[in-house]
């Protein structure tokens, strides 16, 4: 069982910056989620991202990206159980590392 703290740092370091899809970037809710994150409210960002994730119609790449974003936000919020729940339900970027971290 990884220590939560180490998991957080692993995700923060390795959060990917590539493979964005246009559909997701057009979603104003996603912009709001990213804004919340940059405003220092990762919990709010995570809630928004998870709500988007629950909507239908995303490509697998978008789903993965959203899930990873939400995981990162929960990690910053120090909510390890929410990160793990996302990891269980979705494929995350660098998931192996996350779990291992």
């Amino acid at each position: 069982m990884p220590k939560p703290r180490s998991l957080f740092f692993a995700i923060l370091v390795l959060f990917p910056a590539a493979s964005f899809s246009a559909g997701l970037d057009d979603a104003s809710e996603f912009a709001d989620a990213r804004q919340a994150l940059s405003d220092g409210l990762p919990g709010v960002a995570a809630v928004k991202a998870e709500r988007l994730l629950n909507q239908k119609g995303w490509t697998s790449a978008e789903t993965r990206r959203l899930a990873t974003f939400a995981a990162e936000a929960w990690a910053r919020e120090e909510q390890a159980d929410r990160v793990l729940a996302l990891a269980e339900a979705h494929e995350l970027d660098d998931e192996v590392f996350c779990r291992a971290g």
Partner: peptide
């Protein structure tokens, strides 16, 4: 509470 905070944040936005 996290979702409560989101509701507040939406108003400020």
């Amino acid at each position: 509470d996290t979702e409560a905070l989101e509701a507040c944040y939406n108003v400020l936005r």
